[in-house]
Design a protein around this nucleic acid. Structure first.
Lengths: 145, 145
DNA sequence: CAGTTTGTTCAAAAAAACTTGAACAAACAC
DNA sequence: GTGTTTGTTCAAGTTTTTTTGAACAAACTG
């Protein structure tokens, strides 16, 4: 913040707040996000980007949704990881900007890849050791058919 | 618990504990359950029933998994609600007994119906009020194409 | 180089979810 | 009816997850 910065927030970065319909859409995704066991903030961020044609910076996301830097950073990273949002650097701009990936198929498969696999990996290795156990059981345990 | 009850737990209701392979399977479902944002206990219960051919009572589930009455009751109800387990009353038996529904397609669709719908209901009504808002916006807001 | 801007990380605080256990209700047996 | 068994509910305690904000690192500007 230097001596030339504007003091009127409405002029600083076109952050005029949310339209009524945008709040509604954001809430919609917030609830959907909740339903799938994801943090609310993920849903909010995706919802916001979903509403906007223009790509938004992290600052704008923070301001518009009233969330902290940490939440914005982590939320955006997660959403990027499962391909729900993509980011671009406009030429000659240091700010990274984000847009929503609108193809829901991608979103879901990305979510499953990121969310399910890490845990199921542990499970998978256990399944293998299980096969071994099963073989040993077949003869002595009648429960296995 | 009356004067005739047996004191040796191994004889009371054939609750001999879990086989090694059963523990492994239960762990598997526990982790999967976690991945989908469901309580651990749901996964454990489903995993246990998944292992057993015989239908189990709530008591047996509690004993074998070392979980409380409340957890067992609520877990079983939830699993029943999205058709992951079904219950039967053996003739002349007051105990309800539970078995796992093995068709995973049913499980997933049941999960989605139960988990997503209640929240998305709120969202849906919001979507309708949204339509109204949108119509009013089309003329004045160039963002909407 | 020093000063900014931008984004990440992580420990602590806050919020949310899960589990427990005791109290309760319903159904049954005698 | 009384006494027992079976299952549900819910407030309180516990655990887990999410959010925050300050400290940090990296990249850029002049």
């Amino acid at each position: 913040m230097n001596a030339f910065s504007v003091t009127n927030p409405a002029l600083s970065e076109k952050t005029e707040g949310l339209d009524e319909w945008e709040s509604a859409v954001i809430d919609l995704f917030l609830n959907a996000s909740n339903s799938f066991g994801l943090p609310k903030s993920y849903g909010q961020i995706y919802g916001l980007l979903f509403c906007r044609d223009q790509a938004l910076s992290m600052d704008e996301v923070m301001d518009l949704l009233q969330i902290s830097k940490g939440s914005a950073s982590q939320g955006l990273r997660a959403l990027r990881q499962f391909r729900a949002v993509s980011s671009t650097f406009a030429l000659g701009d240091r700010k990274e900007r984000f847009v929503a990936e609108i193809c829901l198929r991608k979103l879901v498969s990305g979510f499953l890849r990121e969310q399910a696999d890490p845990h199921l990996d542990k499970g998978l290795s256990r399944l293998q050791q299980l096969e071994g156990l099963l073989e040993g059981c077949v003869s002595k345990d009648s429960r296995i058919r």
